[in-house]
Design a protein around this nucleic acid. Structure first.
Lengths: 214, 214
DNA sequence: ACCCATATTGAATGATTATTCAATACAAAA
DNA sequence: TTTTGTATTGAATAATCATTCAATATGGGT
């Protein structure tokens, strides 16, 4: 009798990063952090949700810390990929790119309430955990400078000169962070539609002639 | 011999809320959360920093949870008081009031890196701790509606009609939250001066004729 | 000087939890 | 079938911590 049958191994998936169990554990970690917070996330809970044994979870990720870091890395990579896809799309003009960025930042894939909860959990500890900072900071600087360059093109195409590209991009990025946080508080009031609308209105006010910032 | 002398009681300070030790413990809690995070904040560390015994800290606050809640309440009240002082100041016109609000939101008293770290720590758990939400949410709604009313006066005094008071106030509030979070990441880049400047420029762009949004 | 109420201590307790590891199950190879 | 290497388990361990509480200190009232 075998109440808890062992998982069938898949020899084609030797790489840790691509194994089924690896991703199941990361998904379970994200769900658990979102539901209980970093403090009360235990390996036992995560393992249970991922339907593997506690010992296995630890064996696979070497430590709880490493499991948490891997989950942050997963979110960070997911965001990076969606961002890059927008910046590498040559069919987009500057306005189209900005619109896509806004829509991506409040898409259901990227800005689900669970994922935002995890981001904010890690943000709250970034001050004293250099490992968290390492994962996010470099990317963040890239987003910052790419956004600034994009706004520079936009300003060039319009007669907007009062606000500098830096000001507009920093305002945008901090608004996104703030709205994400507010989604945690009150997801009804700060719906994705509301957030996107608010930001588009911000751009519409700056680039008054542009019809696509509806 | 008395290596650890007991504290001298002060009969005039019977109310828990006003005792010296009460505040010392709250200050120590804020420092500890900022330095280690909610997860790794232990009663022992807080008690040590406040220079009282571990048992005393627990006795005074009944539980760790209650100590954390009291610290959040302290920050929340501190913010509320500074906000109210600005709104009750009859010498201020709408523009002056907005400027004061901005300056308050990035003052060294309100927006110290430690205090921001504590705010963000609690924000990150607000999703599943109703007690945290209770302390913040009602106030937050008040700030929201007072700000909106203030902007309404401002719009009335100017020819600004494109952005609604609601849009401007929500944009402002989310920018503040976002910038606070970014101060945690990179306090050098997101200095108080930079943050205030960015927000004033936002208003300057809307109310172009107003000289005080420098 | 003594008593009493209150303030404060610090060590003990018990619960929780990350981590380890010997035992077991499995799949493929021989 | 038997062997072998890998995957996975689950129970034991050890560390950390919140909480409790009996013991002690203090200062004012008598």
């Amino acid at each position: 009798m075998n109440i808890n049958p062992k998982k069938i191994s898949n020899p084609q998936l030797k790489e840790q990063e691509f194994s089924i169990n690896h991703q199941k554990l990361i998904d379970a970690t994200i769900e658990t952090i979102a539901k209980k917070g970093l403090a009360d996330t235990t390996i036992a809970q995560v393992a249970k949700k991922a339907m593997v044994s506690q010992g296995y979870a630890n064996f696979r990720f070497k430590s709880k810390e490493n499991l948490l870091l891997s989950s942050l890395k997963f979110l960070s990579d997911e965001y990076k990929n969606s961002w890059q896809r927008i910046f590498e799309d040559n069919n987009l003009d500057p306005v189209g790119r900005v619109v896509k960025i806004i829509e991506n930042d409040f898409s259901s894939k990227i800005a689900s309430r669970n994922k935002i909860a995890v981001w904010v959990s890690f943000y709250s500890e970034v001050k004293f955990r250099p490992s968290y900072l390492t994962i996010c900071q470099k990317q963040d600087e890239i987003y910052s400078s790419q956004m600034e360059k994009l706004i520079k093109e936009l300003n060039f195409l319009t007669d907007q000169t009062f606000l500098t590209p830096r000001e507009i991009s920093e305002t945008y990025l901090s608004m996104v962070d703030g709205l994400w946080q507010r989604i945690l508080f009150d997801p009804k009031m700060y719906s994705h539609v509301f957030c996107k609308g608010l930001i588009k209105k911000y751009f519409k006010n700056i680039y008054t002639d542009e019809k696509r910032f509806v």
